[in-house]
């Protein structure tokens, strides 16, 4: 029994060090995740039942909802038409300036499993993993803004760190004037801190923060948060600035995983993307 303990302790310490310093144990982790995945499925089962019950509504309510959604879709489409025109114009202008323009990103919709890993970290589990091409350091967004980034992907699921996690930092930019800074998670789901701005920084409550694209993880220009509090600290080098995330981090059910860099991904609509690519090349060549 004592030798058993010795073996186990030594192997554990070896695992801990290797896992801390490198990602060589990811295959072991993936293998073990086949045991842990059923547990996660079991735990999120009650919320699945609840969703099904909610979706069994009366005919009239569904009809009403359908009509509303159709109306909304028409409006959104008109808006998108305008955006498409603007995007083309932007590409043309950037081409004139000699800059490159990022193509539209690939996205994949994923659902949150309702599990809670550890109480002091803001990490959620989604139901898409490396089987779908999800990999670490991928941004995750929802309809309102940035949600977080993929921390670790396993075959059937992956872990997403939210932007409000105390260990998360995100390069942002004030949309109004282009001021760049870093937004750090506060440990509260409705709070971000901007700890690295001086007292005389040009930033006001109500300013929209967007991703700056620096750091290479998040694509540029997605909304992140709105500044809601600016407290000067005359005796300290930096001011206390707080912002509220645009994404509703406490009530998201689905999020979108984004491929923005040049890593090879399975194309969702190959023809469309290719057509867009060639069009863009032409514009740039002009």
């Amino acid at each position: 029994m004592n030798t058993r303990l010795l073996i186990v302790v030594l192997v554990s310490i070896f695992f801990l060090i290797v896992d801390h310093k490198s990602s060589r144990l990811d295959t072991v982790r993936s293998g073990l995740s086949f045991f842990s995945y059923p547990v996660q499925k079991l735990v999120s089962f009650p919320s699945v039942i609840k969703d099904t019950l909610v979706s069994i509504k009366s005919y009239s309510a569904l009809k009403k909802e359908n009509a509303l959604l159709k109306e909304k879709q028409v409006i959104d489409r008109v808006r998108l038409l305008k955006f498409a025109a603007l995007e083309n114009e932007n590409i043309r202008l950037k081409g004139l300036l000699g800059n490159s323009f990022e193509l539209g990103e690939q996205i994949l919709s994923a659902e949150l499993l309702s599990v809670n890993l550890v109480p002091y970290e803001h990490v959620v589990v989604i139901n898409k993993g490396s089987k779908f091409g999800v990999h670490a350091k991928q941004p995750a967004i929802d309809a309102n803004g940035i949600v977080g980034q993929v921390l670790r992907s396993m075959p059937l699921n992956s872990e997403v760190m939210l932007i409000t996690d105390p260990n998360h930092a995100l390069p942002v930019q004030v949309n109004r004037n282009g001021l760049r800074t870093i937004a750090v998670g506060s440990g509260k789901l409705d709070r971000l801190k901007l700890p690295f701005l001086p007292n005389n920084a040009d930033i006001l409550p109500g300013d929209l923060l967007v991703t700056s694209g620096l750091g290479g993880v998040f694509p540029q220009g997605y909304p992140v948060a709105v500044v809601d509090n600016f407290i000067m600290q005359p005796d300290k080098p930096f001011a206390n600035i707080y912002a509220t995330p645009k994404a509703k981090l406490d009530r998201i059910r689905e999020l979108l995983v984004v491929w923005s860099d040049s890593t090879p991904v399975p194309l969702a609509f190959p023809d469309e993307v290719e057509a867009k690519g060639t069009k863009n090349d032409k514009k740039e060549n002009e």
Partner: peptide, 14 residues
Amino acid sequence: VDVLTGRLLGQHAL
């Protein structure tokens, strides 16, 4: 449990 809660491999095991 380590895999389940996203800790370093070996933490709960030890």
